[in-house]
């Protein structure tokens, strides 16, 4: 089987900022409940977050949403700085975090231009009523270590294993392999897939939108991180000049 290279496309034109992806991510990946104090202290853990920006002045104000998760950069700045190889690049193009190797120097978080790496300041806690909904495939992270979006690597692993055992082909865009955020997105603003497969939806979108007049762009390209997440510009019909 050909080596996969996972990637994501975020179509900003379709994103309505509903935050379903945030909730889905929270429950799939055993992220502790974020209390008010966490927001006050700026210590929220959201592997995917929807950033909201206001544009224009009063009567003509527009909200713009941009979901930001780990960009799984090919040239990830967080990887070389980790002294213990907790942050490394696997052969499927994923930037993965090894929780039990992490010692919590937080160097990776400093060196991430996208601010998608999170530190466990406190021990993770859930109310008793929620303890049974924890995902058994995902580690509950102890305090003192970094964590971040994994593109739901547990789903990728399980589906690949199942496919091998049961002998079926993994369908492009199958719910079994899509990350929780993609599955939960009701406007299909998030598209996940194998970029090494030329037939996949994501490859076709990339081929179309990465051209010169396409809508595709990478976040903060000037850092030279070559991310695997492609953003598609919002189409603004009210004015012709583009902005992002």
């Amino acid at each position: 089987m050909k080596q996969s290279k996972w990637g994501m496309v975020v179509d900003l034109d379709k994103c309505n900022g509903c935050q379903a992806c945030v909730v889905a991510c929270q429950s799939e990946n055993n992220i502790p409940l974020q209390k008010k104090s966490d927001y006050d202290e700026n210590r929220v853990i959201q592997w995917i977050r929807v950033e909201r920006y206001w544009e224009g002045s009063f009567p003509d104000v527009k909200a713009k949403f941009i979901p930001i998760m780990c960009q799984h950069c090919d040239e990830a700045p967080c990887e070389p700085v980790c002294p213990v190889y907790a942050s490394y690049h696997n052969n499927e193009g994923l930037n993965v975090q090894v929780y039990n190797r992490c010692i919590g120097t937080r160097f990776c978080a400093n060196n991430c231009p996208y601010q998608v790496r999170f530190f466990n300041f406190w021990e993770a806690e859930w109310p008793d009523s929620l303890k049974n909904q924890l995902n058994p495939d995902v580690t509950v992270r102890s305090r003192g270590i970094m964590e971040k979006c994994t593109f739901c690597v547990q789903k990728i692993r399980r589906t690949k294993r199942d496919a091998k055992v049961n002998g079926f082909e993994i369908e492009d865009g199958a719910r079994e392999i899509n990350p929780a955020c993609v599955n939960s997105c009701n406007t299909e603003a998030l598209i996940f897939g194998d970029m090494n497969n030329p037939e996949s939806k994501i490859s076709r979108i990339k081929a179309k939108e990465e051209k010169k007049d396409g809508r595709g762009y990478h976040l903060m390209e000037h850092y030279g991180t070559s991310p695997n997440v492609l953003y598609l510009k919002k189409v603004d019909n009210s004015k012709k000049s583009h902005s992002h």
């Binding site: 202290e41 210590r43 937080r106 400093n110 530190f119 466990n120 300041f121 406190w122 021990e123 305090r143």
Partner: peptide, 15 residues
């Protein structure tokens, strides 16, 4: 005992 939460560091300012 209680974790690095007792310090002042927070999300963007990790050091």
């Amino acid at each position: 005992y209680s974790g690095l939460g007792v310090t002042g560091v927070q999300r963007p300012v990790y050091w």
